[in-house]
Amino acid sequence: MARRVTTRAKLTNTIIAWFVGLTIFFPILWTFLTSFKTEGDAVAIPPKFLDFHWTLENYIQVNDRSDYLLHFWNSVVISVGSTLIGLAIAIPAAWAMAFVPGKRTKDVLMWMLSTKMMPAVGVLVPIYLMFKNTGLLDTRIGLVIILTLIDLPIIVWMLFTYFKEIPGEILEAARMDGATLRSEILYVLTPMAIPGIASTFLLNVILAWNEAFWTLLLTAANAAPLTAFIASFSAPEGLFYAKLSAASTMAIAPILILGWFSQKQLVRGLTFGAVK
């Protein structure tokens, strides 16, 4: 549709779209700004947009008073850990289903997806009790296990949709060229699959980072990731807007950046390949 658009139409679109975009983004921007205010400026009415006393005090205090770094590290370990373990289990499975499909492959895939639809509350009680009895409550290991299991179907599915796009003939060509299964995977499949694996990794880290059911209910002081740490601000500390904002900014910034890189894969991953 390479056709000329009138500048006026384009200008109108631009203005409306930017207005809508900024409105939607505003709460994040506001949080970011508030994180640099003093508590007094943070609650000032009328609100202060840019003309306040900029300070890093909140960031320092959040780090000092709470074990912010511990929670951050918990989030990293839990999201990256569960994703890596999930990938290790899912890559061979997705590979096999994409390249050696059997009669029941489709059923297995659908069944895996159905496990994702089991609501977490359905198993809250036994998991909680099991964790309590085995001492997994409030441990990073415990959360990694749970998140690996709830992520696994999505990981398998995402990888499957990516692998599916690698033409089977190329693998056959490799086989004809004398590649063993090992070199086929190493030299042909892996290089072609890496973009798909990377996007799966990225999306899944995002999802796990933001997971807020199990992380809230199965952790306390030790293993709490940022989701649970921020939840603790719902108590009176929440009234310290500037500190809440500083903690929030730190909690969402890394994932916001990762997320912006993975918009395309997000669509595909979350729709199980139905929308590309």
Partner: peptide, 9 residues
């Protein structure tokens, strides 16, 4: 092969 099946990378 019909699709040539060259290794794209």
């Amino acid at each position: 092969f019909q699709s040539y099946a060259l290794y794209p990378h």
